[in-house]
Design a protein around this nucleic acid. Sequence first.
DNA 1: TCCTTAAGTGGACACTGTGTCCACATTAAC
DNA 2: GTTAATGTGGACACAGTGTCCACTTAAGGA
Lengths: 195, 195
Amino acid sequence: MTAVNLLDDDAPRERADASRNRAKVLAAAEELFATRGAKNVTMDDIAKTAGVGRGTLYRRYPDRASIAVALLDSHERALQEELLRGAPPLGPGARPADRLGAFYAAMVDLLDRHIHLALGVEVGHTRFATGAYGFWRAHVRALVAHTEDPDALVDVLLAPLAPEVFRYQREDLGLSADRITATLRALARQVLGPS
Amino acid sequence: MTAVNLLDDDAPRERADASRNRAKVLAAAEELFATRGAKNVTMDDIAKTAGVGRGTLYRRYPDRASIAVALLDSHERALQEELLRGAPPLGPGARPADRLGAFYAAMVDLLDRHIHLALGVEVGHTRFATGAYGFWRAHVRALVAHTEDPDALVDVLLAPLAPEVFRYQREDLGLSADRITATLRALARQVLGPS
DNA sequence: TCCTTAAGTGGACACTGTGTCCACATTAAC
DNA sequence: GTTAATGTGGACACAGTGTCCACTTAAGGA
């Protein structure tokens, strides 16, 4: 799901027209998702807006969700990098409770900036199948490893970050991102202890 | 969304063939949802299985979700009744932490028995628009009323009960309902204090 | 019992969106 | 400049949705 596949292995380089079209598709999709909301965008819309045929579009992206995933990918990678090798409390070094709190804050920020894409990925259970979910899951799993039942707890702690939940809180209830962050930070403290 | 509309007001009684067909539709839908999963059931399937025309089906139920809601309704009402007027710890009288724990346990039980219906309701954000969600929300809101920011906390606490999350834990991860319940009970204790 | 009428029925129809297929165009290597 | 593989785009078949309306059926009054 990377943007380009440069010089890797002996994989045949991507043709010039192909990568030009990929860029047009992604730009068009980003635009449409942001404007109308992913639910109201058809593959046809994307193809038309990008100035590309249906066949070209389907060649790389079998559905809307995969386009949203591709668009979200770069932003998610940046955060993943920070979690693995960044400075505390996001990166290693801080206490689990603080790292979980920082993770929550970063995810709320990510969601707030790209909620239209996050909702585009969400086609029900699609979310759990995503590679990204697996990453977040592994990260939080490690932070709660010392608790009673980490394998059951981890998805409970990730549940409030579901795009639909976040959208409901932000848009329907009108809560600020800060309030949501504060609440999740408090949750992290209570679950992992203030120690 | 009640099953029958008996003698209420001056509303014209439902005709015999109409209520016969409603029963056939609900039975067919229940069966199909349980067998194939709601996602793989079309309105046409339901009409055919019920032995009813499309027009008849659409007259009362504009989409799959509304049928699932109708089917789930009776079970949810029973729980709602208990929350309002049942014995503690589910009903009034017990401490908030215990009531929230009991609520979690009851909801996990409900989800476990009717997950195919709960997933049928779930068409993304549909969940929050449901009357039922409003009820759960009001209930939990009252239990956490004394905390820092109840309005932000309530949806965070309800998020792990999203049908998709539950399904993932039960089916993809293979967790038992008891483990999930225990984890949520612990969460309730940690958030509302053991006091 | 028959008649009336309003409610209810069911299937045909138009429409929207999906995904596939393949003749043709473009690219890049030789 | 030729060639072979890669990529393109629009036509097509299909599945599911929701609407519409001529017909049927139930239920109450004469």
